[in-house]
Design a protein around this nucleic acid. Structure first.
Length: 367
RNA sequence: GUGCCCAUGGUGUAGUGGUAACACAGCAGGUUGUGGUCCUGUUAUCGAGAGUUCAAUUCUCUCUGGGCACC
């Protein structure tokens, strides 16, 4: 259940009730694709201010496999996470796999068949199966299987992907209702369901896709495909208009977004939910995010030689003791030694930065 | 002491009578529904001296340094 508490033009503040707790919007979810945030224990993840995580259907289906997760009693129990979890449908992964290499699978209107990148075995994914898997995972928020085309696809190909995404969303909704009844998940136990708006950089396709999905009716709607073009330019206008195509009382989920700047921009357009690999992945590669005094931010590459003897703190204002006490010079040393403790500290730093960024947006939107 | 072998960037190795290549390290970029090991640039080298030659990192000699064997 989602309720907008404050709506000042497009600056939104709201509450999402999920089976595993309430979330204030807008919020950011780190990606725990394979049921772990890389480098961190759950306790450490919580210390960054993180409330909810994203896991991935595609990855968990392949490893460790559904049998194991069902036996564990769901992903929450498997990974010992008691907060809200969202699962991605796996559509993005399957389609990027096939679009990169057509030998990896086939897509038709009914289903998608793909080869496991792990052992080459063949698997079939349908909208119904994707929803069933997500119920087996036992997550709080699920995403419909969508046909996710690269933004550079031709108009005709984008149209076909939109048509398929709508048809599949309908099938997902039907399967969702079926599973709800079958599993008797009423009231607060009922997960939220999201559909994904496709259409590349063609505004009318985005509008059409959103309208058709709204007719079917979902708790929230996501922005599909990469939010940047092939030159790395942010699709600002497309994001802004797509948010407007989504009803005000629905959740707006900006999948895979993004840089701190992109999240700031999107939150001003009325997007409520974000997830991205940037803070964790870039952290592992040595890029740190930090605030300037005037609330702007900058990044630094801890690998750079200029940090060799920089004994200032990683983040003097951090709530996390290690970030407050350890110096940049020490972190530089850990990275030069290829010591995973360095990746952990950088991940902690970046997730705390992202959560502080979102907390700031929420404060701003409340007032 | 005698004999033999070796010497190429920071490290480990290619190679050639027309001034040198690769890997790692270094330096710096990149990463948007996860590439933990990824990608892209970039800096830097023929131990010293003499000889042969139009030309030597390459051939010869001496020296220096290192290794092996023998006494």
């Amino acid at each position: 259940m989602f309720k907008v508490i404050k709506n000042n033009k497009k600056l939104r503040h709201g509450l999402v009730k999920t089976p595993h707790g309430v979330l204030e919007t807008p919020f950011f979810m780190p990606d725990a694709t394979r049921a772990y945030v890389k480098q961190l224990t759950n306790k450490e993840t919580l210390e960054t201010g993180t409330k909810a995580l994203v896991v991935n259907t595609f990855h968990l289906y392949l490893q460790p496999g559904l049998a194991v997760i069902k036996k564990a009693g769901g992903v929450h129990k498997f990974m010992n996470w008691s907060g809200p979890l969202l699962s991605d449908s796996g559509g993005f992964q399957v389609f990027s796999l096939i679009h990169r290499n057509s030998a990896m699978g086939k897509i038709n209107d009914d289903k998608v068949i793909f080869k496991s990148p792990l052992d080459g075995s063949l698997h079939e994914l349908t909208p119904e199966k994707s929803i069933q898997i997500q119920f087996d995972l036992g997550v709080d928020m699920m995403v419909c299987l969508d046909d996710c085309p690269p933004n550079e696809f031709s108009r005709v190909d984008l149209e076909r992907a939109v048509a398929r995404t709508i048809a599949w969303a309908k099938r997902c909704k039907i399967e969702f209702e079926k599973q709800i009844k079958k599993r008797r998940l009423n009231g607060l136990k009922k997960p939220l369901l999201f559909a994904v708006v496709q259409g590349g950089a063609e505004l009318d396709l985005r509008e059409n896709c959103a309208q058709e999905l709204v007719k079917i009716g979902f708790d929230g709607y996501g922005f599909g495909a990469r939010p940047v073009d092939k030159d790395g330019n942010f699709l600002e206008n497309i994001l802004e208009k797509t948010a407007e195509f989504i009803p005000e009382n629905s959740l707006r989920f900006a999948l895979g977004i993004g840089t701190p700047e992109d999240i700031l921009r999107c939150s001003k357009m009325g997007w409520d939910m974000f997830d991205c690999v940037i803070p964790t992945r870039e952290g592992r590669h040595g890029r740190l995010f930090r605030f300037n005094k005037n609330k702007t931010y900058k990044t630094l590459n801890i690998n750079n030689a200029k940090f060799l003897a920089d004994f200032t703190a990683i983040n003097i204002g951090s709530r996390i003791t290690e970030l407050k006490r350890h110096s940049l010079a020490y972190l530089h040393h850990l990275f030069k030694m290829n010591e995973s403790l360095g990746q952990k500290l950088a991940t902690l730093n970046n997730l705390e930065f992202y959560q502080d960024l979102l907390a700031g947006i929420r404060r701003n939107n409340k007032n």
